Computed example of a mutant assay.
Amino acid sequence: MAGHYRDGVSLRLGGQALFESVVWGEEERPDDAERAWERLGCISGSPARPEKQYGAGPDNLWALSPARQAVTELKTGCVTDTIAKKDINQLGGSVRWFNDHNREAKALPVMLHPSRYSESQGTPPQGMRIVTPARFEKLKEAVTQYVAALAASPDRWRDEQAVGEQSAHHKLNGDRFFYTYAEPVRPS
């Protein structure tokens, strides 16, 4: 965080800006959403944007631990009641790309989508998690509280122990992040 924010005030403002950059619905701004999701990844892991960097792979990749990485596709512009087979296949392809490039860690397939239900023709990757707008709002509340707690006193947000304690308290670390702020995909 020290590389992105100069003080607690800029941390709070930056936290708010992350969520304002993710727009749901037809007016979405995909690059803004992917960039915001990458910055949010600084809280729970080391983020990257392979598709942007290499022209292949997922929209976002977060190292949650040495053994686990979140492979994420953002579909915030979708307005359907189900997750289309093509979007499920895209996430599956990103998981395969990840597996081809990383033999040491296991992929956690994640998608930001307005629905948690897959089309009946789709075959979601095993363990797929969905961040819906409702879960995204819960995440926004948690990050807002997390940032406020860290910005409450000078340089607290630079204290590794305080950051770790607040991450754990708000369930923003490792796999807990996606088991709290995402839900399993369901058949339609």
Results as ranks from 00 to 15, higher is better:
residue 64 L to V: 07
residue 43 I to Q: 07
residue 10 S to H: 05
residue 160 E to W: 13
residue 24 W to E: 02
residue 19 F to C: 03
residue 182 A to N: 01
residue 170 H to V: 05
residue 1 M to G: 15
residue 117 Y to E: 00
residue 182 A to P: 00
residue 38 E to V: 07
residue 147 V to Q: 02
residue 115 S to C: 07
residue 14 G to M: 05
residue 130 I to Y: 03
residue 179 Y to E: 14
residue 133 P to K: 03
residue 156 R to F: 09
residue 36 A to G: 06
residue 142 A to F: 04
residue 115 S to F: 06
residue 177 F to G: 00
residue 188 S to V: 03
residue 121 Q to L: 01
residue 52 K to P: 02
residue 21 S to N: 13
residue 111 M to K: 00
residue 186 R to M: 10
residue 157 W to Y: 15
residue 182 A to R: 01
residue 160 E to V: 15
residue 182 A to I: 01
residue 178 F to P: 01
residue 15 G to E: 03
residue 31 D to M: 12
residue 122 G to N: 03
residue 105 A to W: 01
residue 101 H to C: 14
residue 55 G to Q: 09
residue 49 R to K: 14
residue 36 A to Q: 05
residue 144 T to Y: 07
residue 67 A to P: 10
residue 79 V to H: 13
residue 138 K to G: 13
residue 8 G to R: 06
residue 5 Y to F: 15
residue 11 L to V: 03
residue 104 E to M: 12
residue 113 H to I: 04
residue 163 V to D: 02
residue 6 R to D: 09
residue 41 G to T: 04
residue 83 I to M: 04
residue 76 T to W: 04
residue 4 H to K: 14
residue 23 V to S: 08
residue 66 P to M: 06
residue 138 K to S: 14
residue 84 A to N: 14
residue 52 K to S: 07
residue 172 L to T: 00
residue 46 S to A: 10
residue 13 L to D: 13
residue 74 L to P: 04
residue 146 Y to W: 15
residue 126 Q to T: 11
residue 85 K to Q: 11
residue 149 A to F: 05
residue 165 E to S: 07
residue 55 G to H: 12
residue 124 P to K: 09
residue 47 P to L: 00
residue 17 A to T: 13
residue 73 E to C: 11
residue 42 C to F: 14
residue 101 H to K: 12
residue 146 Y to Q: 05
residue 11 L to H: 03
residue 164 G to A: 12
residue 57 G to L: 03
residue 129 R to T: 02
residue 81 D to T: 15
residue 143 V to L: 10
residue 6 R to E: 10
residue 10 S to W: 04
residue 103 R to A: 13
residue 157 W to M: 11
residue 149 A to N: 12
residue 184 P to E: 07
residue 61 L to N: 01
residue 166 Q to H: 06
residue 28 E to C: 11
residue 87 D to A: 02
residue 7 D to R: 10
residue 152 A to N: 10
residue 11 L to N: 02
residue 102 N to H: 14
residue 94 S to Q: 04
residue 182 A to E: 00
residue 89 N to V: 12
residue 43 I to E: 08
residue 43 I to D: 05
residue 127 G to K: 01
residue 11 L to P: 03
residue 185 V to H: 03
residue 79 V to T: 15
residue 180 T to N: 12
residue 151 A to I: 11
residue 154 P to F: 06
residue 100 D to P: 08
residue 124 P to N: 11
residue 42 C to G: 13
residue 71 V to N: 00
residue 57 G to C: 05
residue 184 P to T: 07
residue 47 P to D: 00
residue 2 A to N: 13
residue 175 D to N: 06
residue 41 G to N: 03
residue 78 C to N: 14
residue 14 G to V: 02
residue 48 A to V: 03
residue 39 R to P: 05
residue 140 K to R: 15
residue 153 S to H: 13
residue 101 H to S: 12
residue 65 S to Y: 03
residue 141 E to C: 08
residue 26 E to I: 10
residue 173 N to D: 12
residue 114 P to S: 02
residue 114 P to I: 03
residue 111 M to I: 10
residue 38 E to S: 13
residue 141 E to N: 11
residue 68 R to D: 06
residue 89 N to R: 15
residue 145 Q to P: 08
residue 120 S to M: 02
residue 171 K to E: 14
residue 149 A to H: 09
residue 11 L to C: 03
residue 184 P to K: 05
residue 122 G to M: 02
residue 146 Y to A: 04
residue 49 R to T: 07
residue 57 G to F: 04
residue 128 M to A: 08
